[in-house]
């Protein structure tokens, strides 16, 4: 394990806004601001665990209507249909477009579900001050930050397709309420990941 001292042991805080290392004695409980960029200095993000849980649970609840409700309405030569995210994936698969089915499945199903699991795991272990697999948990957090926003893919696909297919009676595509739920889920999981303070993973000393 590394021998580098941690910020609270030296009585300093790294500013979140600009990275400057500022003096902050451990017994100092006043709210200080970074002298360089004026961002508030926090030893840990305030209420990190509660906020992350709240946003994660909200995302999880909305993920249900996001999957059950149609995301797109299609009318093609008089044939009308409404499809959900999974139906869209299955249609691509059946049509032989395996690559595209896989891309949409990863962005819309695998990434959000993995995010739910990883954030839940990080929260539970951080709450228990667990020292289990800390390095791996730190990596998982960075993975969540890296891949999270790719889930917006399906929202943008519906946007482009709906903008293009506008041939009145011949053919028409419109967005449906499911895509709103899905977009909100993506935003909530991103906010949830941002609320989580990765430094909590390393706070394993029992109090």
């Amino acid at each position: 394990m590394s021998s580098a001292p941690r910020a609270h042991e030296l009585g300093v805080i790294g500013c979140h806004g600009c990275g400057l290392v500022c003096e902050h004695p451990p017994d100092d409980l006043t709210h200080r601001h970074c002298p360089r960029c004026q961002a508030p200095l926090h030893r840990r993000r305030p209420d990190s665990i509660t906020r992350t849980w709240a946003l994660l649970v909200a995302a999880l609840i909305l993920y249900i209507p996001a999957n059950l409700l149609p995301v797109m309405y299609t009318s093609m030569f008089g044939k009308v249909s409404e499809s959900t995210i999974m139906v869209g994936v299955i249609e691509f698969w059946k049509a032989g477009s395996y690559g595209i089915a896989l891309v949409i499945f990863i962005a819309s199903v695998a990434v959000p579900c993995t995010k739910f699991l990883i954030l839940g795991l990080l929260l539970v272990t951080a709450q228990r001050r667990s020292n289990w697999a800390v390095r791996e948990r730190a990596r998982l957090y960075r993975l969540v930050e890296l891949v999270g926003y790719w889930s917006m893919l399906d929202v943008l696909v519906v946007a482009v397709v709906a903008a293009l297919v506008k041939f009145q009676k011949l053919s028409d595509v419109e967005p449906r309420i499911g895509i709103l739920f899905f977009g909100v889920v993506v935003i909530l999981t991103m906010l949830s990941a941002m609320s989580f303070d990765p430094r909590l993973t390393w706070d394993t000393e029992k109090e």
Binding site: V12, G14, H16, R199
Partner: peptide, 21 residues
Amino acid sequence: LIVLRTFPDLAVCEHCDSVYR
């Protein structure tokens, strides 16, 4: 306004709070 001492020659890891020169 209280002027805090700052340490431009140090770097703190955003992810785990380790301090380095």
